[in-house]
Write a protein that binds this DNA or RNA. Sequence first.
RNA 1: GCGGAAGUAGCUCAAUUGGUAGAGCGACAGCCUUCCAAGCUGUAGGUCGCGAGUUCGAGACUCGUCUUCCGCUCCA
Length: 518
Amino acid sequence: MAQQDEIFKKLVSHSKEYGFIYPSSEVYDGLAAVYDYGPYGSLLKNNIKEYWWKAMVQLNENIVGIDAAIFMHPKTWKASGHVDAFNDPMLDNKDSKKRFRADQLIEGVIEKLQDKINKEVEKAAKRFGDSFDEKMFRKTNPRCVEYAAKAADIDHRMNLHMKNGDMVGLKSMIDELEIADPDTGSRNWTEVRQFNLMFHTQLGNIAGEESKLYLRPETAQGIFVNFLNVQKSTRQKIPFGIAQIGKAFRNEIVARQFIFRMREFEQMEMQFFIRPGTQQDWYAKWKETRMAWHLALGTPQSKLRFKDHDNLAHYADAAVDVQFEFPFGFRELEGIHSRTDFDLGAHQELSGKKMQYFDPELGENYVPFVVETSIGCDRMFLAMMSHAFTEEDVPDAKGEDAKRTVLKLHPALAPVKCAVLPLLKNKEELTSAAMKIFNDLRYVVNCQYDEKDAIGRRYRRQDAIGTPYCITVDFQTLEDNTVTIRDRDTLQQERIKIEDIERIVLQKTDMRRLLEKL
RNA sequence: GCGGAAGUAGCUCAAUUGGUAGAGCGACAGCCUUCCAAGCUGUAGGUCGCGAGUUCGAGACUCGUCUUCCGCUCCA
């Protein structure tokens, strides 16, 4: 574990040192849990997005892409359940220093009351034997009735406070019910404070409730509200999908672990609209499809796994995570959710606009069901970086063991595909020949020319940013128009003709090679 | 928000009991160099996180403050 921690730290500093990820606003001492993508980082991130987009949109004639705005009508978030479900009332125990959700503490009391009722029922069942009428007992037994009434009262009042955002009311309930920290028994609580997981800003210049706008906490809603627009303008028939890549914002209480949990992040989401009742088949199909997408990158099966959700979100009837083994353990990378007709149904209800599809085969209208695939772009980035980051021993110029740090990124994802290097800087014939090759190749792939320092050092610099291939121009080049091409992972060199460089580099690094595996 | 740790050059870290801020690596320039972090020379880069206090004198001691990291609570 300590070793894993060490590797993670090295990855973080490597990311900064080589221009992948910088802490945000570093000159002002940084901004917690916000990061900027540097030159190589943004190239890598774009390649990840391209791989996803092409796999989803380009290769599926029944999936189309959109780019919806981050700002949406505030009612969107009312319909989606985010306004209500993402306001968490929290309080701390001053003695144990632990933090709790006020509503969960109060619900604990309700659960205890229900346990008491169940115990009464059990006792009575034993007493009365076969003649026991449980329903009647629950309704008539004075203790059961009392407990049930109390539970209902607490539940009712809590919901009222939650609805009104009445933090003081929640706190007074906690005092009144004499709720204690379950571990320590302490009742020394702070005030209840509200944590809203959505960021907001205002539309127009006048601040006020009516002009309050949220920064979207998920991209999915931009897809749902455009469902009919897209279906009609692209003449799609169910089943079909809408894909989108975009930023989302969540005011996490604690954002940690580098870019794994950020307050501003990027999602790659696809909502697949289907006939009600077919959701299980499509859920299974997308689980399989998405896993294949991950495996095509060469990520070992052992680093990926499915993890079913224990608690389903308010909109889902089935949910599974694709987890990746990060340096800090298996964590969620992608979610696949069967979202039922919850979202479209909610928008239909709140907007008063029909969100229905006429199915010509069935000859009827219905609100489609949805299976969602949602992957965190930044998490995918971190997964690729942490899998690729390698420190290994290789022989140096004297044949002794030396360390090299190399990013073994999939060639199709690598930010720079190829470096063109003259063996020596001070031989004009070599540099001009190399420059000529470089100026030709740059039209085809992202490549670099480097003549500074000894050749070995230049190779290592390219290793550090994950460049899969290095073309070296040497004296033999001047005689027979051949160059060497060095493989990042094997360090093997092959001699190839200059005229073949473009074809060979493309063949090895083109996204096509990756997409064909799907 | 609470608790813990840490802030000195781009990076990693030094600086005896308080006495003029250094090294290695990296960067840049030049020379040299025929394939895996080579050598030589030179250059740039720091109000020691910030603010007070103690002292003849503070990077070091005291107090405050800010930021980051780790843990806890939350995580669609």
